[in-house]
């Protein structure tokens, strides 16, 4: 069976994990209420999307 020959150094682990960072989602303020939302989605706070209210806040999921 294949067995590691040497100790896996902290540096190696660090190098592997150098690509693991999670980025925050890109958001921009809703033009109606200012909540930060991703683009192309209905605003979860006020239900605003492209110039009209499509989803009144009460029946929010």
């Amino acid at each position: 069976m294949a067995v590691p020959k040497r100790k896996h150094s902290n540096s190696r682990s660090g190098m592997r994990r150098s690509h693991d960072k999670v980025k925050a989602k890109n958001t921009s303020p809703c033009p109606q209420c200012g909540t930060n939302i991703p683009s192309h989605v209905v605003c979860p706070t006020c239900g605003y999307y492209m110039g009209r209210i499509v989803n009144p806040p009460k029946d929010e999921e």
């Binding site: 989605v41 209905v42 605003c43 979860p44 009209r52 499509v54 999921e61």
Partner: peptide
């Protein structure tokens, strides 16, 4: 219409599918 919050449980991207004529 895409919704902002993913589904709780499987994080599925949610959307509204509706007939046009209302909320135009």
């Amino acid at each position: 219409l895409k919704l902002a919050h993913p589904r709780l449980g499987d994080a599925g991207k949610q959307a509204i599918l509706e007939f046009v004529g209302i909320h135009d």
